[in-house]
Amino acid sequence: MTALQTPPDTAAAPTRSTAPARNSLGDKISRYLYIRPKMRVTGLLLLPMLWLGVLYIGSLALLFITAFWTTDSFTSKVIPAFTLENFTEILTQPAYQATALRTIGIALSVTMLCAALALPLGLYMAKVASPKMRAVLAIGITLPLWAGYLVKVFSWRITFSTGGPLDWLLAPFGATGPGYGTAALVATLAYLWFPYMAVPVYSAFRQIPDNLFDASADLGAKSWATVRTVAIPLLKPAFIAGSIFTFSLSLGDYIAAQFVGGKTQVIGTVIASNINLNPPLAAAFGIVPIIVVVIYLFLARKTGALKAL
């Protein structure tokens, strides 16, 4: 592109009275494109659409097609054919059903946990904390996003290890940490995705005018009644927006499951373990999170919350 930049037209400089001869290549292309906005848009979108539209969407489409193929059980070679075998296997095998349902359950628990933590934190930050404290906390909740995904998983792997910090912390109360397992997995995922919920909830809290709370108090509502009947309905779009991230990110995660989940199997673990041995089955199972996310987005849209964003 830089090559097309034209040097100042020195040839035309002395003859100022006549129209300058603007005939460099860049000028020609410019003039050609100037009157053809459609060409300009096409030019701009051609490469990105080749990448996203052909390569990426093409890959997703191919994934969908592969889900109907089968593999040679001896050589693990993919055989193009049309069979519903993979889908019937996912839908009828109790182990696969349980894995899919467990993963959805984990994603929902993570979302609930994030929402339950974001509500009081948002209330404190928006309505109680001093402006300075508010700024510190606002940076405080977003900063860990930069710390690196694996580092955070690792930090909770240390926390939950047997005889580790959590066990040590709970020892005076006569309790031990849950160890690696589903509970540790939910806690870790909630930790990972919490900023995605906390930030929209906090900014939505900030936008609620104080006089709404005053009015509610004047009418005799106690703090909790005000939060429940005034704040939560107004925060609904923020909760839903945040939940899309916490839900969808938890649904696709399997690395955390591997390191803090103990024996807990999730959709991702099944896909990862089949990707080389039985790609069509992995593909079919890969469609499960897509369908769940689409249903989730559809439900979120139906509540009308997405329009308010």
Binding site: Y56, L60, S248, G252, D253, I275, G286, P289, V293
Partner: peptide, 11 residues
């Protein structure tokens, strides 16, 4: 927007 695993498996 789609889970990373979907992008990964598709590619």
């Amino acid at each position: 927007a789609l889970p990373g695993i979907v992008t990964g498996v598709a590619l």
